[in-house]
Write a protein that binds this DNA or RNA. Structure first.
Length: 876
DNA sequence: CGCGGACATTTG
DNA sequence: AAATGTCCGCGC
């Protein structure tokens, strides 16, 4: 038997499976999805088994055997292995990168090089091999080295060289002559957690009998035995020591007598272990909820792959529909995945799921320690849970019988991973659900236009899809003849041009479900648009309009709570000299530095460069230097000035980095220990506090001014979300939106809670300007330290893309650029970008791959990098 | 002729 | 990615 293995080297040349022989004794253990250690050239590497076969069609003598299997159970399921291949084809990344993204960081390989005593030397005296006659040829230090290694069994080379720093040569010599041999080890970053546990050997009666036998001075040992006679065991050693206030030696004494056992037991680090979740029962559904639930649960029961787009206004009870749909899925013996944006994965959210499904739920989010994360993941793998709730990467939960995948707040851009693999969890979810004949529910109050477009595609589009598949094939042919002509592109590249697995490349139309009413018929809050230009004209230069000021004052008086949103993006806190106009810039990036009050430093967002706060202008030595823009810190200061005694909780990157701090602030606010919650985006998501009756957006339109075609969509979504925070309970809510663009359709539609009019307007504009969802984008960014080479290469790449696109005519593919990226330099590297705009039905990943492949030499020779982003969310 | 360094090749 | 192989210029 042979295994196809993808090795742990993310490079173009190694981006294919290598064959390995499976030795007889490993045959039971090697499966598709196994993690294995394999010899690769002179090295030993970790790899993933992606296929099994019983012969190779070349000289089998070339095939090396698998050295080891890393896990008791394969960490990946076969469907995930296929999905990784699909991801690498769709998002143009190395297959190993996709595979690595699917397992927790704790399982990422750590390579260690050790030395040990060679087998031929193992049983001998140190000097046996090194004697002539009576005389040892070993230097004393070499003798010492050998003894040291012999004692330890094996020693990491680094450690050994450090210990015998002055005698590196001796170590080398011993290795050269074969006394010491190198062993390459592959270790996990993180081991499973083990604790010491105490277990008695006999029944209570026997324990008491033994206790009697003990001499009087062994009072403590006696106590331990009596303890076990009465209590359930096993018990943690540490707990036992605590409880009886005894030392470990007491227990050890009993263990030495053979009366009890101290064992290492594997435990799960459970971040929610200390918490009690009150069990909840399904709530009665409103008619709308019931209809939606019926559609979803019917599809689940039918085991039919179907994508639903659930558009429900804030407060319409989407979560209850999710919960009951999941119940249907569980009742069927299948598993469910719930994706939630990182910042809305709040304790409140977790509580709702743990409350309903108890310890059947695993939770995965980035604030867990690597160990906790690994343990939650293992619960999934070991089938101890059937529901996982988590951020983006939870879509890779190693379940085997998925019935339902829910993506809450599906419009959130955080579902797109910005590093390789640059996948979109929503699209991966649809692909994965297809593998399992599972149902997908995309839930949002403000669906993304991409998902909306999915519901608009009619069956007539199916014909188009089939046509495109055909065109895709003809492209492959075209690429082949092209490569033959040039003789420069390998067959492997061409064969990767089109996905040929079993995952559907084009999804079937989505079904739209809507919920327009809030639970218990509570009205949506009234939204006031405030024209800040008007305020300025009338002499109000503060960041609060007069009406918002009054509204805040009123709530403080009535002891109701307030949420204030400051949209920080585009509202940077840059440092500027008011005399000469100097702005502090990062020396390595084309971006201004932002001011951080907590550390009294100015810092670059992109490369982390930081310097001390400046009080004197470095350019003109003026002292009129100040930080501009309205950071949350400044708003907080302003609030305490305007409303003395106001209790403000500020939530932003500065105050929520510490583990659990996010949770702490929200609990405080929920307990009404503060009057006002001030924050960035993170206060807009999913929070639900009964006493919040006022929500203010201080600068609603900052996003609007960004050079991004999704600016209006983002603005609309944010305002709708934040407005949904008010008046969710008995007290009615009110929303104030401050803006310099009060006539903009995104702001007007949001203030009227009118998704449809926004969507219609935006769709028309997108279609007119040939933007997504009607056209799709691929962003190619090139970076290098020098502009001339960069420009030349970017232009050559664009030309090559155009040339290749020609062969696809008449399919509409447009190559835009190259132009300098919006952030033209990061970490001392200049950046240029090309944009490919094409109609969704064209399959062009192969084309891009091929074009980029012809610049491999430049990439290698000049250390130029080319990165590809399929369906980019942020155009920077 | 032997050496070091740049560069290309290979990894099953 | 990293180890190995190849080639070339250089000093002797």
């Amino acid at each position: 038997m042979y295994a196809k293995v993808i090795v742990d080297v993310p490079a173009k040349q190694t981006n294919r499976a290598f064959d390995y022989f499976i030795p007889e004794k490993l045959r039971e253990w090697v499966m598709v999805g196994s993690r294995v250690g394999v010899p690769f050239g002179p090295r030993k590497l970790q790899g993933f088994v992606v296929g099994l076969q019983d012969h190779v069609d070349y000289d089998p003598a070339k095939v090396k055997p698998i050295a080891e299997v890393m896990d008791l159970y394969p960490p990946l399921t076969p469907d995930l292995v296929e999905l990784a291949s699909w991801i690498s084809n769709t998002y143009l990344c190395h297959e190993i990168t996709a595979l690595q993204a699917m397992i927790p960081g704790a399982l990422k390989a750590k390579y260690e090089r050790h030395v040990k005593i060679s087998d031929t030397m193992a049983g001998k005296r140190n000097d046996e091999k090194h004697t002539i006659g009576q005389h040892s040829m070993l230097l004393p230090v070499q003798d010492e080295i050998i003894s040291y290694v012999r004692e330890k069994g094996s020693v990491e080379i680094e450690t050994l060289l450090q210990k015998f720093a002055a005698d590196g040569g001796s170590v080398k010599q011993l290795m050269l002559e074969g006394t010491l041999v190198e062993v390459q080890l592959i270790k996990d970053r993180m081991a499973t957690k083990k604790i010491l546990t105490v277990i008695p050997h006999e029944e209570p009666s026997q324990l008491l009998e033994w206790a009697e036998q003990l001499p009087g001075r062994s009072a403590k040992q006696k106590e331990v035995l009596q303890y076990f006679a009465e209590r359930p065991y096993p018990i943690k050693l540490s707990e036992l020591l605590n409880e009886l206030s005894i030392s470990a030696s007491t227990v050890k004494g009993l263990a030495d007598k053979g009366w009890l056992d101290i064992q290492e037991v594997e435990v799960f680090r459970d971040p929610y272990a200390e918490r009690y979740f009150r069990r909840t029962e399904p709530l009665p559904l409103m008619p709308e909820q019931q209809q939606v639930f019926d559609r979803i649960s019917q599809a689940v029961l039918d085991v039919r792959h179907q994508v639903f787009l659930l558009q429900g206004v804030t407060g319409s009870g989407k979560t209850e529909v999710y919960l009951q749909s999941i119940q249907t899925c569980l009742d069927q013996g299948r598993e469910a995945i719930v994706l939630v944006p990182e910042i809305s994965l709040t304790p409140q959210m977790v509580e709702r799921f743990k409350g309903r499904f108890g310890n059947l739920v695993a939770v995965l989010h980035s604030r867990l320690s690597p160990g906790e994360r690994y343990d939650e993941w293992r619960k999934i793998m070991l089938k101890q849970v059937s529901v996982v709730i988590g951020a983006r990467s939870a879509i890779f939960a190693p379940f085997t019988r998925i019935g339902l995948i829910i993506i809450d707040e599906e419009h959130e851009s955080s579902y797109k991973q910005e590093e390789s693999p640059k996948y979109h969890a929503r699209d991966v979810a649809v692909a994965r659900a297809g593998q399992h004949q599972a149902v997908v529910v995309l839930g949002s109050a403000t669906p993304s236009l991409e998902s909306m477009y999915g519901t608009m595609r009619k069956n007539s589009d199916r014909a188009l899809e089939q046509m495109s598949t055909a065109t895709g094939n003809s492209y492959t042919a075209a690429a082949k003849s092209d490569s033959a002509a040039r003789g420069s592109i390998t067959a492997a590249t061409t064969s990767q041009a089109a996905w040929s697995g079993t995952i559907q490349q084009q999804a079937a139309p989505f079904e739209l479900l809507t919920m327009n009413n809030r639970v218990e018929g509570r009205p949506l809050p009234r939204v006031h648009i405030i024209d800040m230009r008007e305020e300025l004209r009338e002499g109000n230069r503060s960041m609060f309009s007069r009406s918002l000021y009054k509204a805040i004052e009123e709530r403080l008086h009535k002891k109701e709570q307030i949420v204030l949103l400051l949209n920080r993006r585009g509202y940077s806190t840059f440092v500027m000299c008011r005399t000469c106009g100097y702005v502090a810039q990062c020396p390595h990036c084309d971006i201004s530095l932002t001011y951080h009050q907590s550390s009294r430093a100015i810092r670059c967002h992109y490369c982390g460069y930081a310097e001390r706060e400046v009080t004197v202008c470095p350019s003109c030595t003026s002292e009129h230097i100040r930080h501009f823009g309205t950071g949350t810190q400044r708003v907080e200061e302003e609030l305490s000035k305007l409303f003395p005694g106001i209790r403000v909780i500020r939530m932003d990157v500065d105050t929520t980095t510490e583990k659990g701090s996010h949770e702490k602030w929200l609990t405080m606010f929920g307990n009404r220990q503060a009057d006002l919650l001030l924050g960035t985006q993170m206060v807009a998501k999913g929070l639900d506090f009964p006493h919040v009756t006022l929500v203010g957006a201080l600068a609603a339109d900052t996003v609007l001014n960004l050079p991004d075609f999704r600016a209006a969509e983002r603005t609309f979504q944010l305002l709708t979300q934040v407005a949904g925070r008010a008046g969710r309970h008995e007290l009615p809510g009110e929303v104030y939106v401050q803006t310099y663009a009060p006539e903009h359709y995104s702001i007007i539609s949001a203030s009227r809670h009118d998704y449809n009019s926004f969507k219609d307007k935006e769709m028309t504009l997108r279609k007119f300007h040939e933007y997504p969802p009607f056209h799709r984008l691929i962003l190619i960014t090139l970076s290098h330290e020098q502009i001339p080479l960069l420009m030349r290469t970017a232009e050559a790449l664009a030309a090559r893309l155009k040339e290749l696109a020609q062969s696809l005519a008449p399919l509409p593919i447009e190559i835009l650029g190259p132009v300098a990226s919006p952030i033209a330099r990061i970490k001392d590297r200049y950046r240029f970008q090309c944009m490919i705009k094409y109609r969704g039905e064209a399959s062009i990943s192969g084309l891009v791959q091929q074009a980029v492949a012809s610049f491999e030499d430049v990439e290698r020779q000049h250390k130029l990098t080319i990165s590809i982003d399929v369906d980019p969310q942020v155009l920077m």
